[in-house]
């Protein structure tokens, strides 16, 4: 008996949301056809996220989400946001030190003088609380005013390395990179299947520093016929050899012609 012709689903480009900071950039304006043109906007009001969402410069920017300028723009903002957080931590440390001195001197002297300590803490608030809110507020301003090609208040940008990820594969993959802490040079461990099974490790992995020494690119070559599944590899900071991040690679179903089906 003749077997009926059978159709198969197309191979998915990916199977998971891209929730990284770049993910939002891939969002389009929405499905065509667009909403009914006779529907005007709701009377009054602005976008709940406030000003900065919808200006022309950013609309143009969103139209080409994967352009080099877009990536640079986001990279810069990620770096400067990191700097701001680092700044926050540093300020916290300094305040903690000064508070510590004050607290310990109080303990040595009048340990029960809690009201005085509280007064000191209110003062401490002006050192750290204001900075805390303002730092995060600065993020808001950046979100609202930054446009491509503009660096806003980026401090010590060179401290944060730029790590790229390059995957060579003959089958569809999803890859992500997470850095736990800054590291300018890395060693990449082989990628191991999770959960461990019969799948071979992916061993052709390397880190290629860029010319400036302030970053580089992780390169992964997936062998032909590598088993479908999830793989993880640890990134070690050089020369300390301590964990600095992880790379995750998901190998999706093999393409049609490699499945060996009739």
């Amino acid at each position: 008996m003749k077997e009926p012709q059978r159709l198969r689903r197309p191979v998915p480009r990916r199977t998971r949301p891209n929730r990284s900071i770049l993910g939002a950039l891939s969002q389009s304006d929405g499905l065509p056809p667009i909403a009914d043109p006779v529907d005007g906007p709701e009377a009054g009001g602005m976008h709940p996220l406030g000003p900065g969402f919808g200006d022309a410069a950013e609309a143009d920017f969103a139209a080409d989400p994967l352009s080099d300028s877009a990536r640079e723009y986001i990279d810069r903002n990620v770096r400067s946001a990191s700097d701001l957080i680092d700044g926050q931590i540093r300020q916290g440390e300094e305040t903690a030190k000064s508070l510590g001195r004050s607290a310990f001197s109080s303990l040595n002297g009048a340990a029960s003088d809690l009201p005085a300590l509280l007064t000191g803490l209110v003062r401490a608030y002006s050192d750290i609380g204001t900075a805390w809110v303002d730092i995060v507020g600065a993020l808001a301003q950046k979100a609202e005013t930054a446009v491509p090609g503009t660096v806003n208040g980026s401090r010590n940008a060179a401290d944060m390395p730029m790590i790229g990820l390059s995957v060579v594969a003959g089958q569809p993959v999803e890859a992500s990179l997470e850095l736990f802490r800054p590291a300018q040079r890395l060693t990449v461990q082989p990628l191991v299947a999770t959960p461990p099974g019969n799948a071979a490790d992916i061993r052709e992995v390397s880190f290629e520093p860029d010319g400036s020494g302030a970053g580089g690119r992780i390169r992964i070559v997936v062998p032909g016929g590598q088993a479908v599944g999830m793989y993880h590899g640890l990134l070690l900071a050089d020369p300390e050899g301590t964990p600095a991040g992880a790379v995750t690679l998901k190998i999706l179903t093999l393409p049609e012609d490699e499945r060996g089906r009739s």
């Binding site: 304006d29 996220l49 950013e58 950046k142």
Partner: peptide, 21 residues
């Protein structure tokens, strides 16, 4: 209070769904 637009309108400009935002 009412916010601009209506759900299902085309998103204009940069997508707002970011943690930073």
């Amino acid at each position: 209070p009412p916010a601009a637009g209506a759900p299902g309108d085309p998103l204009t400009g940069r997508n707002p769904f970011s943690v930073k935002g």
